[in-house]
Write a protein that binds this DNA or RNA. Structure first.
Lengths: 202, 202
DNA sequence: GCTAATTCTTGACGAAGGTCAAGAAGATCT
DNA sequence: AGATCTTCTTGACCTTCGTCAAGAATTAGC
Protein backbone atom coordinates (compact mmCIF):
# COMPACT_ATOMS: atom_id res chain seq x y z
CA UNK A 1 0.00 0.00 0.00
CA UNK A 2 1.57 3.33 -1.06
CA UNK A 3 1.33 6.56 0.82
CA UNK A 4 -1.38 7.98 -1.43
CA UNK A 5 -3.65 5.03 -0.73
CA UNK A 6 -2.96 5.25 2.99
CA UNK A 7 -3.98 8.89 3.12
CA UNK A 8 -7.11 8.15 1.16
CA UNK A 9 -7.88 5.33 3.55
CA UNK A 10 -7.42 7.48 6.64
CA UNK A 11 -9.49 10.27 5.12
CA UNK A 12 -12.36 7.86 4.60
CA UNK A 13 -12.07 6.65 8.17
CA UNK A 14 -12.22 10.19 9.43
CA UNK A 15 -15.35 10.79 7.39
CA UNK A 16 -16.88 7.78 9.13
CA UNK A 17 -16.28 9.54 12.42
CA UNK A 18 -18.24 12.59 11.28
CA UNK A 19 -20.94 10.40 9.75
CA UNK A 20 -21.44 8.64 13.07
CA UNK A 21 -21.75 11.92 14.94
CA UNK A 22 -24.24 13.17 12.38
CA UNK A 23 -26.53 10.37 13.53
CA UNK A 24 -26.78 12.26 16.80
CA UNK A 25 -27.17 15.81 15.48
CA UNK A 26 -26.59 17.81 12.26
CA UNK A 27 -23.11 19.33 12.11
CA UNK A 28 -22.01 22.28 9.97
CA UNK A 29 -18.51 22.85 8.62
CA UNK A 30 -17.51 24.93 11.61
CA UNK A 31 -18.57 22.22 14.06
CA UNK A 32 -16.59 19.67 12.11
CA UNK A 33 -13.50 21.82 12.02
CA UNK A 34 -13.75 22.31 15.79
CA UNK A 35 -14.01 18.58 16.30
CA UNK A 36 -10.78 18.08 14.37
CA UNK A 37 -9.05 20.91 16.21
CA UNK A 38 -9.87 19.40 19.58
CA UNK A 39 -9.16 15.76 18.84
CA UNK A 40 -6.35 13.52 17.76
CA UNK A 41 -6.41 10.41 15.61
CA UNK A 42 -4.38 7.36 16.50
CA UNK A 43 -4.05 3.88 15.02
CA UNK A 44 -3.48 0.94 17.37
CA UNK A 45 -2.19 -2.36 16.14
CA UNK A 46 -3.77 -5.69 16.99
CA UNK A 47 -3.51 -6.54 20.70
CA UNK A 48 -2.03 -3.14 21.55
CA UNK A 49 -3.08 -1.74 24.91
CA UNK A 50 -4.97 1.55 24.69
CA UNK A 51 -5.36 2.21 28.41
CA UNK A 52 -4.21 0.29 31.49
CA UNK A 53 -5.74 -0.08 34.95
CA UNK A 54 -4.21 1.89 37.79
CA UNK A 55 -3.83 5.04 35.74
CA UNK A 56 -6.14 8.02 35.91
CA UNK A 57 -8.12 8.42 32.72
CA UNK A 58 -7.80 11.75 30.91
CA UNK A 59 -9.34 10.78 27.59
CA UNK A 60 -12.50 9.81 25.79
CA UNK A 61 -12.06 7.61 22.73
CA UNK A 62 -14.25 7.13 19.70
CA UNK A 63 -13.95 4.01 17.55
CA UNK A 64 -13.61 5.01 13.92
CA UNK A 65 -12.58 1.56 12.76
CA UNK A 66 -11.78 -1.66 14.56
CA UNK A 67 -12.74 -3.35 17.80
CA UNK A 68 -11.74 -2.75 21.41
CA UNK A 69 -12.33 -4.90 24.45
CA UNK A 70 -12.75 -3.70 28.02
CA UNK A 71 -11.29 -6.15 30.50
CA UNK A 72 -10.66 -6.35 34.22
CA UNK A 73 -7.82 -8.10 35.93
CA UNK A 74 -8.99 -10.73 38.42
CA UNK A 75 -6.27 -12.53 40.36
CA UNK A 76 -3.93 -12.31 37.37
CA UNK A 77 -6.51 -13.52 34.85
CA UNK A 78 -8.35 -11.11 32.62
CA UNK A 79 -12.11 -10.96 32.26
CA UNK A 80 -13.66 -9.24 29.28
CA UNK A 81 -16.70 -7.15 30.18
CA UNK A 82 -17.49 -5.27 26.97
CA UNK A 83 -16.71 -4.79 23.29
CA UNK A 84 -16.65 -1.47 21.46
CA UNK A 85 -16.94 -1.29 17.68
CA UNK A 86 -17.31 1.38 15.00
CA UNK A 87 -19.35 4.39 16.14
CA UNK A 88 -19.02 3.89 19.89
CA UNK A 89 -17.43 6.08 22.53
CA UNK A 90 -15.05 4.52 25.04
CA UNK A 91 -14.41 5.97 28.47
CA UNK A 92 -13.27 4.71 31.85
CA UNK A 93 -16.24 6.50 33.39
CA UNK A 94 -15.47 6.59 37.08
CA UNK A 95 -11.79 7.37 36.61
CA UNK A 96 -12.45 10.08 34.03
CA UNK A 97 -15.22 11.71 36.04
CA UNK A 98 -13.75 11.53 39.53
CA UNK A 99 -10.04 11.34 38.66
CA UNK A 100 -9.43 8.15 40.61
CA UNK A 101 -7.30 5.22 39.42
CA UNK A 102 -9.14 3.10 36.87
CA UNK A 103 -9.86 -0.63 37.15
CA UNK A 104 -10.51 -0.87 33.42
CA UNK A 105 -8.14 -2.01 30.69
CA UNK A 106 -8.80 -1.21 27.03
CA UNK A 107 -7.14 -3.26 24.32
CA UNK A 108 -7.42 -3.24 20.52
CA UNK A 109 -8.58 -6.67 19.36
CA UNK A 110 -7.80 -5.84 15.74
CA UNK A 111 -6.03 -2.93 14.09
CA UNK A 112 -8.10 -0.05 15.40
CA UNK A 113 -8.38 3.65 14.60
CA UNK A 114 -9.52 5.91 17.43
CA UNK A 115 -10.28 9.59 17.75
CA UNK A 116 -8.96 10.75 21.10
CA UNK A 117 -10.51 13.63 23.05
CA UNK A 118 -8.50 14.79 26.04
CA UNK A 119 -10.40 15.99 29.08
CA UNK A 120 -9.19 19.52 28.43
CA UNK A 121 -10.38 19.44 24.83
CA UNK A 122 -13.64 17.74 25.72
CA UNK A 123 -14.45 20.41 28.29
CA UNK A 124 -13.62 23.06 25.70
CA UNK A 125 -15.95 21.47 23.14
CA UNK A 126 -18.73 21.24 25.70
CA UNK A 127 -18.30 24.94 26.50
CA UNK A 128 -18.12 26.05 22.87
CA UNK A 129 -21.47 24.76 21.76
CA UNK A 130 -24.61 23.16 23.22
CA UNK A 131 -24.42 20.83 20.23
CA UNK A 132 -21.49 19.03 21.76
CA UNK A 133 -23.17 18.97 25.16
CA UNK A 134 -26.12 17.32 23.45
CA UNK A 135 -23.88 14.78 21.69
CA UNK A 136 -22.28 13.99 25.04
CA UNK A 137 -25.63 13.49 26.71
CA UNK A 138 -27.04 11.32 23.95
CA UNK A 139 -23.87 9.22 23.72
CA UNK A 140 -23.97 8.74 27.49
CA UNK A 141 -27.64 7.84 27.37
CA UNK A 142 -27.05 5.29 24.64
CA UNK A 143 -24.25 3.66 26.56
CA UNK A 144 -26.40 3.65 29.69
CA UNK A 145 -29.17 1.90 27.80
CA UNK A 146 -26.83 -0.79 26.53
CA UNK A 147 -25.40 -1.26 30.04
CA UNK A 148 -28.89 -1.63 31.44
CA UNK A 149 -29.62 -4.28 28.84
CA UNK A 150 -26.52 -6.20 29.81
CA UNK A 151 -27.47 -6.13 33.49
CA UNK A 152 -30.97 -7.26 32.57
CA UNK A 153 -29.48 -10.17 30.63
CA UNK A 154 -27.39 -11.24 33.62
CA UNK A 155 -30.36 -11.07 35.97
CA UNK A 156 -32.97 -12.63 33.69
CA UNK A 157 -31.15 -15.01 31.37
CA UNK A 158 -29.00 -18.13 31.46
CA UNK A 159 -25.59 -18.19 29.78
CA UNK A 160 -27.10 -20.16 26.91
CA UNK A 161 -29.86 -17.60 26.40
CA UNK A 162 -27.33 -14.76 26.44
CA UNK A 163 -25.28 -16.64 23.85
CA UNK A 164 -28.26 -17.07 21.54
CA UNK A 165 -29.20 -13.42 21.88
CA UNK A 166 -25.68 -12.25 21.12
CA UNK A 167 -25.64 -14.53 18.09
CA UNK A 168 -28.88 -12.97 16.81
CA UNK A 169 -28.18 -9.33 17.63
CA UNK A 170 -24.46 -9.07 17.06
CA UNK A 171 -23.36 -12.26 15.34
CA UNK A 172 -20.55 -10.50 13.48
CA UNK A 173 -18.77 -10.22 16.80
CA UNK A 174 -18.03 -13.96 16.66
CA UNK A 175 -16.15 -13.36 13.39
CA UNK A 176 -13.82 -10.75 14.84
CA UNK A 177 -13.44 -11.56 18.54
CA UNK A 178 -11.64 -14.60 20.04
CA UNK A 179 -14.11 -16.93 21.67
CA UNK A 180 -12.43 -16.80 25.08
CA UNK A 181 -13.21 -13.07 25.29
CA UNK A 182 -16.84 -13.66 24.39
CA UNK A 183 -17.01 -16.38 27.03
CA UNK A 184 -16.14 -14.06 29.87
CA UNK A 185 -18.42 -11.36 28.41
CA UNK A 186 -21.21 -13.94 28.72
CA UNK A 187 -20.07 -14.72 32.26
CA UNK A 188 -18.82 -18.28 31.66
CA UNK A 189 -15.51 -20.08 31.17
CA UNK A 190 -14.17 -20.71 27.65
CA UNK A 191 -14.83 -24.43 28.08
CA UNK A 192 -18.46 -23.81 28.98
CA UNK A 193 -18.97 -21.54 25.98
CA UNK A 194 -17.47 -24.23 23.79
CA UNK A 195 -20.03 -26.70 25.16
CA UNK A 196 -22.92 -24.24 24.83
CA UNK A 197 -21.94 -23.69 21.20
CA UNK A 198 -21.94 -27.42 20.54
CA UNK A 199 -25.32 -27.81 22.23
CA UNK A 200 -26.94 -24.91 20.36
CA UNK A 201 -25.39 -25.29 16.91
CA UNK A 202 -25.45 -29.08 17.01
CA UNK B 1 -50.54 12.38 62.18
CA UNK B 2 -52.60 15.54 61.63
CA UNK B 3 -52.72 17.62 58.49
CA UNK B 4 -50.33 20.26 59.80
CA UNK B 5 -47.65 17.67 60.47
CA UNK B 6 -48.18 16.10 57.07
CA UNK B 7 -47.60 19.38 55.27
CA UNK B 8 -44.47 20.05 57.28
CA UNK B 9 -43.25 16.57 56.46
CA UNK B 10 -43.85 16.96 52.73
CA UNK B 11 -42.17 20.37 52.75
CA UNK B 12 -39.04 18.86 54.25
CA UNK B 13 -39.10 16.08 51.66
CA UNK B 14 -39.33 18.62 48.90
CA UNK B 15 -36.34 20.46 50.30
CA UNK B 16 -34.41 17.19 50.16
CA UNK B 17 -35.11 17.07 46.46
CA UNK B 18 -33.56 20.50 45.94
CA UNK B 19 -30.66 19.64 48.25
CA UNK B 20 -29.85 16.58 46.17
CA UNK B 21 -29.87 18.59 42.95
CA UNK B 22 -27.62 21.21 44.53
CA UNK B 23 -25.00 18.49 44.80
CA UNK B 24 -24.86 18.58 41.02
CA UNK B 25 -24.92 22.35 40.48
CA UNK B 26 -25.86 25.56 42.36
CA UNK B 27 -29.49 26.54 41.87
CA UNK B 28 -31.00 30.00 42.35
CA UNK B 29 -34.59 30.72 43.35
CA UNK B 30 -35.71 30.99 39.76
CA UNK B 31 -34.27 27.57 38.88
CA UNK B 32 -36.00 26.06 41.87
CA UNK B 33 -39.32 27.62 41.00
CA UNK B 34 -39.00 26.26 37.45
CA UNK B 35 -38.29 22.79 38.79
CA UNK B 36 -41.51 22.91 40.81
CA UNK B 37 -43.49 24.29 37.89
CA UNK B 38 -42.40 21.45 35.63
CA UNK B 39 -42.68 18.56 38.06
CA UNK B 40 -45.24 16.79 40.16
CA UNK B 41 -44.87 15.14 43.52
CA UNK B 42 -46.50 11.82 44.27
CA UNK B 43 -46.46 9.46 47.26
CA UNK B 44 -46.61 5.72 46.61
CA UNK B 45 -47.52 3.28 49.33
CA UNK B 46 -45.55 0.17 50.13
CA UNK B 47 -45.60 -2.39 47.30
CA UNK B 48 -47.44 -0.01 44.97
CA UNK B 49 -46.48 -0.28 41.32
CA UNK B 50 -45.00 2.90 39.86
CA UNK B 51 -44.59 1.75 36.28
CA UNK B 52 -45.41 -1.54 34.54
CA UNK B 53 -43.76 -3.33 31.63
CA UNK B 54 -45.42 -3.17 28.23
CA UNK B 55 -46.22 0.52 28.54
CA UNK B 56 -44.28 3.30 26.88
CA UNK B 57 -42.45 5.41 29.43
CA UNK B 58 -43.22 9.13 29.42
CA UNK B 59 -41.67 10.06 32.77
CA UNK B 60 -38.46 10.44 34.70
CA UNK B 61 -38.74 9.95 38.45
CA UNK B 62 -36.59 11.25 41.27
CA UNK B 63 -36.56 9.52 44.66
CA UNK B 64 -37.14 12.10 47.38
CA UNK B 65 -37.79 9.53 50.10
CA UNK B 66 -38.14 5.77 50.07
CA UNK B 67 -36.90 2.87 48.01
CA UNK B 68 -37.86 1.54 44.59
CA UNK B 69 -36.94 -1.72 42.94
CA UNK B 70 -36.56 -2.34 39.23
CA UNK B 71 -37.64 -5.83 38.28
CA UNK B 72 -38.14 -7.87 35.14
CA UNK B 73 -40.70 -10.56 34.56
CA UNK B 74 -39.15 -13.88 33.60
CA UNK B 75 -41.59 -16.70 32.84
CA UNK B 76 -44.00 -15.35 35.45
CA UNK B 77 -41.38 -14.91 38.15
CA UNK B 78 -39.92 -11.52 38.90
CA UNK B 79 -36.22 -10.77 39.02
CA UNK B 80 -34.96 -7.66 40.76
CA UNK B 81 -32.15 -5.92 38.87
CA UNK B 82 -31.69 -2.64 40.76
CA UNK B 83 -32.62 -0.55 43.77
CA UNK B 84 -33.14 3.20 43.78
CA UNK B 85 -32.98 5.22 47.01
CA UNK B 86 -33.01 8.87 48.05
CA UNK B 87 -31.30 11.17 45.55
CA UNK B 88 -31.47 8.91 42.51
CA UNK B 89 -33.23 9.35 39.20
CA UNK B 90 -35.33 6.51 37.82
CA UNK B 91 -36.04 6.06 34.13
CA UNK B 92 -36.93 3.20 31.80
CA UNK B 93 -34.15 4.39 29.51
CA UNK B 94 -34.81 2.59 26.25
CA UNK B 95 -38.57 3.06 26.42
CA UNK B 96 -38.30 6.73 27.36
CA UNK B 97 -35.69 7.52 24.72
CA UNK B 98 -37.03 5.51 21.78
CA UNK B 99 -40.72 5.33 22.78
CA UNK B 100 -40.88 1.54 22.61
CA UNK B 101 -42.71 -0.69 25.11
CA UNK B 102 -40.68 -1.10 28.30
CA UNK B 103 -39.52 -4.37 29.82
CA UNK B 104 -38.96 -2.73 33.20
CA UNK B 105 -41.24 -2.70 36.21
CA UNK B 106 -40.80 -0.17 39.01
CA UNK B 107 -42.28 -0.85 42.43
CA UNK B 108 -42.12 1.02 45.74
CA UNK B 109 -40.59 -1.25 48.38
CA UNK B 110 -41.55 1.12 51.17
CA UNK B 111 -43.71 4.23 51.28
CA UNK B 112 -41.96 6.35 48.67
CA UNK B 113 -42.14 9.97 47.58
CA UNK B 114 -41.21 10.71 43.98
CA UNK B 115 -40.88 13.85 41.93
CA UNK B 116 -42.23 13.10 38.46
CA UNK B 117 -40.97 14.85 35.33
CA UNK B 118 -43.03 14.19 32.22
CA UNK B 119 -41.19 14.01 28.93
CA UNK B 120 -42.82 17.23 27.85
CA UNK B 121 -41.74 19.04 31.01
CA UNK B 122 -38.27 17.52 30.94
CA UNK B 123 -37.72 18.70 27.37
CA UNK B 124 -38.93 22.13 28.41
CA UNK B 125 -36.50 22.26 31.34
CA UNK B 126 -33.63 21.18 29.12
CA UNK B 127 -34.48 23.96 26.67
CA UNK B 128 -34.89 26.63 29.32
CA UNK B 129 -31.43 26.44 30.81
CA UNK B 130 -28.08 24.70 30.21
CA UNK B 131 -28.09 24.10 33.98
CA UNK B 132 -30.75 21.45 33.57
CA UNK B 133 -28.97 19.97 30.58
CA UNK B 134 -25.90 19.70 32.78
CA UNK B 135 -27.89 18.07 35.59
CA UNK B 136 -29.27 15.59 33.08
CA UNK B 137 -25.83 14.75 31.76
CA UNK B 138 -24.27 14.34 35.20
CA UNK B 139 -27.19 12.26 36.48
CA UNK B 140 -26.91 10.04 33.40
CA UNK B 141 -23.15 9.77 33.83
CA UNK B 142 -23.54 8.76 37.46
CA UNK B 143 -26.06 6.09 36.64
CA UNK B 144 -23.83 4.85 33.83
CA UNK B 145 -20.92 4.55 36.25
CA UNK B 146 -22.97 2.55 38.71
CA UNK B 147 -24.23 0.29 35.90
CA UNK B 148 -20.67 -0.28 34.73
CA UNK B 149 -19.71 -1.26 38.27
CA UNK B 150 -22.55 -3.78 38.43
CA UNK B 151 -21.50 -5.35 35.13
CA UNK B 152 -17.92 -5.50 36.38
CA UNK B 153 -19.12 -7.28 39.52
CA UNK B 154 -20.99 -9.89 37.47
CA UNK B 155 -17.99 -10.50 35.23
CA UNK B 156 -15.28 -10.48 37.90
CA UNK B 157 -16.86 -11.65 41.16
CA UNK B 158 -18.62 -14.66 42.64
CA UNK B 159 -22.03 -14.32 44.25
CA UNK B 160 -20.37 -14.45 47.68
CA UNK B 161 -17.96 -11.65 46.78
CA UNK B 162 -20.82 -9.51 45.47
CA UNK B 163 -22.70 -10.13 48.71
CA UNK B 164 -19.75 -9.03 50.84
CA UNK B 165 -19.24 -5.92 48.76
CA UNK B 166 -22.89 -4.95 48.97
CA UNK B 167 -22.74 -5.48 52.73
CA UNK B 168 -19.75 -3.13 53.00
CA UNK B 169 -20.84 -0.44 50.55
CA UNK B 170 -24.59 -0.38 51.05
CA UNK B 171 -25.35 -2.43 54.15
CA UNK B 172 -28.42 -0.33 55.00
CA UNK B 173 -30.11 -1.90 52.00
CA UNK B 174 -30.41 -5.16 53.97
CA UNK B 175 -32.44 -3.28 56.60
CA UNK B 176 -35.01 -2.00 54.15
CA UNK B 177 -35.19 -4.52 51.30
CA UNK B 178 -36.59 -8.10 51.52
CA UNK B 179 -33.80 -10.61 51.12
CA UNK B 180 -35.38 -12.34 48.14
CA UNK B 181 -35.04 -9.13 46.14
CA UNK B 182 -31.39 -8.77 47.08
CA UNK B 183 -30.85 -12.40 46.07
CA UNK B 184 -31.92 -11.84 42.50
CA UNK B 185 -30.01 -8.54 42.39
CA UNK B 186 -26.93 -10.61 43.27
CA UNK B 187 -27.89 -13.14 40.61
CA UNK B 188 -28.72 -16.08 42.89
CA UNK B 189 -31.80 -17.81 44.31
CA UNK B 190 -33.15 -16.79 47.74
CA UNK B 191 -32.02 -20.15 49.13
CA UNK B 192 -28.48 -19.63 47.94
CA UNK B 193 -28.32 -16.14 49.45
CA UNK B 194 -29.54 -17.59 52.72
CA UNK B 195 -26.66 -20.08 52.62
CA UNK B 196 -24.11 -17.45 51.62
CA UNK B 197 -25.24 -15.33 54.57
CA UNK B 198 -24.81 -18.25 56.96
CA UNK B 199 -21.37 -19.01 55.52
CA UNK B 200 -20.14 -15.41 55.70
CA UNK B 201 -21.71 -14.25 58.95
CA UNK B 202 -21.24 -17.60 60.71
C1' DG C 1 4.42 -23.55 3.23
C1' DC C 2 6.20 -25.17 7.44
C1' DT C 3 6.83 -24.61 12.33
C1' DA C 4 5.59 -22.86 16.59
C1' DA C 5 2.14 -20.60 19.33
C1' DT C 6 -2.15 -19.92 20.52
C1' DT C 7 -6.90 -21.07 20.81
C1' DC C 8 -10.57 -24.28 20.88
C1' DT C 9 -12.56 -28.75 22.10
C1' DT C 10 -13.41 -32.76 24.86
C1' DG C 11 -13.47 -35.78 28.96
C1' DA C 12 -13.38 -36.47 33.93
C1' DC C 13 -14.22 -34.80 38.24
C1' DG C 14 -15.38 -31.65 41.92
C1' DA C 15 -17.58 -27.35 43.50
C1' DA C 16 -21.35 -24.27 43.41
C1' DG C 17 -25.94 -23.15 42.59
C1' DG C 18 -31.05 -24.37 41.51
C1' DT C 19 -35.23 -26.67 42.88
C1' DC C 20 -38.54 -28.76 45.80
C1' DA C 21 -40.50 -29.30 50.14
C1' DA C 22 -41.17 -28.60 54.96
C1' DG C 23 -40.57 -26.13 59.00
C1' DA C 24 -39.02 -21.72 61.61
C1' DA C 25 -39.13 -17.01 62.05
C1' DG C 26 -40.97 -12.68 61.16
C1' DA C 27 -44.42 -9.34 59.60
C1' DT C 28 -49.27 -7.81 59.22
C1' DC C 29 -54.02 -7.23 60.28
C1' DT C 30 -57.81 -6.77 63.03
C1' DA D 1 -52.33 -10.42 71.52
C1' DG D 2 -53.61 -13.98 68.39
C1' DA D 3 -54.25 -15.65 63.85
C1' DT D 4 -52.71 -15.45 59.25
C1' DC D 5 -49.80 -14.60 55.73
C1' DT D 6 -45.32 -13.95 54.06
C1' DT D 7 -40.47 -14.51 54.13
C1' DC D 8 -36.47 -16.96 55.51
C1' DT D 9 -33.92 -21.20 56.56
C1' DT D 10 -32.53 -25.90 56.08
C1' DG D 11 -31.97 -30.51 54.00
C1' DA D 12 -31.82 -33.63 50.02
C1' DC D 13 -31.05 -34.13 45.42
C1' DC D 14 -29.89 -32.89 40.79
C1' DT D 15 -28.15 -29.81 37.23
C1' DT D 16 -24.87 -26.69 35.68
C1' DC D 17 -20.53 -24.76 35.60
C1' DG D 18 -15.44 -24.42 36.70
C1' DT D 19 -11.03 -26.59 36.66
C1' DC D 20 -7.43 -29.46 35.08
C1' DA D 21 -5.33 -31.84 31.49
C1' DA D 22 -4.63 -33.56 26.94
C1' DG D 23 -5.42 -33.50 22.20
C1' DA D 24 -7.28 -31.08 17.85
C1' DA D 25 -7.70 -27.14 15.19
C1' DT D 26 -6.60 -22.74 14.01
C1' DT D 27 -3.59 -18.82 13.63
C1' DA D 28 0.81 -16.32 13.34
C1' DG D 29 5.60 -15.78 12.17
C1' DC D 30 9.49 -16.77 9.47
Amino acid sequence: MNLGQTNLYLARMTDNFIEYLKNYIPLDKEDISKLYTFSEKKVYEKNEMIFCEGKISHDIYFVVKGCVRLFYNVHGKDRTAFFYTEGQFICAGESYTFQVPAKENFQAIEETTLMIFSRKNTDKLLEISPKFELIARIATENELISCQKIIASFVTQSAEERYKELLNNNGKLFQRVPQQYIASFLGVSPETLSRIKKRVLG
